[in-house]
Amino acid sequence: MVTINVNGTDRTVDVESDTPLLWVLRDVIGLTGTKYGCGMALCGACTVHLDGKPVRSCTTPVGSIGAAKVTTIEGLSPDRSHPVQKAWIELDVPQCGYCQSGQIMSASALLAEKPQPTDADIDAAMSGNLCRCGTYQRIRAAIHRAAQLQGARS
């Protein structure tokens, strides 16, 4: 038994402690917004926040999390109102959409850390997130847009 805090709720799950967080989220807790793409921290599809920092849940054993708070795409906002989600809709970023939960989690962590990211900041923060559909140009524009929206809100 392992207890983790996911999107503000404590969840006790009956899994081996070396089980990657990704599969606990998806198959045990039922939060399928977080995706599997590579299992080796190469694609970023599985990105979630651990105490606000982006991590690859596919290589994060559930037993290593302790009291850190896990936030998934489902917990980012209840109604797509996070500035990153708003900007993603405004600029119509997703294509197949499979990578987008991970992209949004990486982008929202970036904006929390750097409210006005430069293109170099975006390269550094986002280059671990693959998009096979090649939505990068819109992702970059949407991060800049989200920075504006976030600035206007605060």
Binding site: L76, W88, P94, G97, S101
Partner: peptide, 15 residues
């Protein structure tokens, strides 16, 4: 705007 965009920014789209 694509009709599937909202479901693809909140993790609810079913793949």
């Amino acid at each position: 705007t694509r009709l599937d965009t909202p479901a693809k920014v909140d993790g609810s789209a079913t793949f």
